[in-house]
C-alpha cells in the first residue's frame, strides 16, 4: 500500500517540536491492542496499534511538544522515526492538530 510512502514524505514535514493536541471532534477508545479513534467531522475511523502510541497521543495536549510526549512515553531514539510517521499520518487525517491552529 502507498500509505507507507505517504507517511514518510509527511514525516519530514511533521513539526515534532510544536505543541499538538487531539482534534476536538475526535474520540479515543482504548482497546487491548491500542486504541480506536473516530473523527465525528470526517466520519473516519483510525487505529493506534499499540499502547505506547496511545500514551503519546493522550498526552499531547499536556506536553510541551510532540517530542516531549514521545520521550515521556518511553519512546527510544531508534523508535522515534516510526512514531513520527504515525503522528504525521494522524495529522494528515486531522485526527490531531497543532495547538496554535484554530
Amino acid at each position: 500500500m502507498s500509505t507507507d510512502r505517504i507517511g514518510q514524505s509527511l514525516a519530514s514535514a511533521f513539526e515534532l517540536d510544536h505543541g499538538w493536541r487531539l482534534h476536538p471532534q475526535v474520540s479515543i477508545r482504548p482497546e487491548r491492542f491500542g486504541a480506536l479513534l473516530y473523527h465525528f467531522g470526517t466520519r473516519r475511523l483510525s487505529f493506534l496499534k499499540n499502547r505506547t502510541l496511545l500514551t503519546v497521543v493522550s498526552s499531547l495536549e499536556s506536553e510541551r511538544s510532540a517530542r516531549t510526549a514521545c520521550v515521556a512515553a518511553g519512546v527510544g531514539a531508534d523508535e522515534m522515526p516510526a512514531y513520527v510517521s504515525a503522528l504525521a499520518g494522524l495529522a494528515a487525517s486531522s485526527m490531531i492538530c497543532e495547538r496554535t491552529a484554530p
Binding site: 473516519r44 483510525s46 499499540n50 502510541l53 510517521s85 504515525a86 499520518g89 494528515a92 485526527m95
Partner: peptide, 14 residues
Amino acid sequence: MTAVAAPSHRVGSL
C-alpha cells in the same frame, strides 16, 4: 484518506 497510524511491531494484524 486515513492511514493506519502506528508502528506495527508487537501486535498481530488488526
